[in-house]
Write a protein that binds this DNA or RNA. Structure first.
Lengths: 185, 185
DNA sequence: GTCTATACCATGATAGAC
DNA sequence: GTCTATCATGGTATAGAC
């Protein structure tokens, strides 16, 4: 499953064959079918894996960050931490969603659930900042911003751009926090 | 070429077969090979087509918009104009770049040239606004913002989100124009 | 220029020996 | 659980008749 996850990320789901995955874990194709009967079955398993990994990561950030702003900054910083892989292969979440959309694949909605985890987590953090009804919109804005940054990082391989957008996101976040603090008083 | 362009957009390049394209224009597969000898050849033709169409569109906006802000707003509004197709298939430019990146395809750089056309056009508009050295960064920011909006529009199929981000972009643009006008004085 | 026929290969998937 | 052998399908690409 880890090998399939990595190959789906690097080569795309459709372009990755059973032979690729079996070869990566040094199994014969025949044996591979003992574990996963169809390609959709291993895709489901990979998405489950990603959902679980995402939940664990978000829980980690919740424990790590002292304030909502610090926690949201953990999210923003994955663009820097995974910069090399994002420049080569894009965002794992966004690219899978987009591919499954083009394939009109049944698992499309489940792939979008990974995005939904980030969205809901960010929404909760903005609510903790006092954003109220606005929290969902702010969460989607940050999520979209990071997606756009990943897309252009992949297209142009421009490290300076990524750094600048991340700094911009942090500055925007601080400004939002100040604005919401003022509104609270 | 138009049929291939549309199919590459809707189904992805890799997932579209010669039979699909030949069938769409009611040609036999054999005959199709008379016109395009390899799949890469038709991909090159499609990218050329897109480059040309993009140049024409940008030239149209240059003529249409009375001011740099009005012209950049033309760019922002394609998210609204193409909303239905973007929600179904994503941004044509971004999704092709991402797919070719995963396929590690030789045409990857040429696909990114379409992005570069938008980037350079936006840079020139921000320069006309008086942004100077900052123009390139502002151009990439707008381009990334629209890419992120397209990515989430595709994942969540949320029309309200798209409208809100477009309004946000226009407001941001107006604020930048005011800031640059003040700095000029 | 257009077609049929076909070579050739990779793929998803199965059967069955060990 | 692991393997080899095999099948059916569909893909890119070519040859050659008309």
């Amino acid at each position: 499953m880890a090998a399939a996850d990595e190959l789906f990320y690097r080569q795309g789901f459709d372009h990755t064959s059973f032979a690729d995955i079996a070869g990566a874990v040094k199994l014969s194709r025949g044996n591979f079918y003992y574990h996963f009967r169809t390609k959709d079955e291993i895709l489901d398993a990979v998405i489950d894996r990603r959902l679980e990994a995402t939940r664990a990561m978000l829980a980690g950030w919740a424990a790590e960050g002292a304030s909502p702003v610090a926690r949201i900054e953990c999210f923003v910083r994955i663009l820097i931490m995974n910069q090399i892989r994002i420049m080569a292969y894009g965002c794992p979440v966004g690219t899978l969603c987009q591919e499954l959309a083009k394939l009109d694949h049944a698992a499309r909605a489940r792939a979008a659930d990974v995005f939904a985890l980030f969205r809901d987590w960010l929404t909760a953090e903005f609510e903790a900042l006092g954003a109220g009804d606005e929290a969902g919109a702010l969460a989607l804005h940050v999520l979209g911003w990071s997606q756009g940054t990943a897309a252009l990082a992949n297209a142009f391989k421009d490290e300076v751009f990524v750094r600048r957008e991340v700094d911009g996101m942090c500055a925007w976040l601080a400004a939002q926090a100040r604005r919401l603090a003022r509104a609270r008083r």
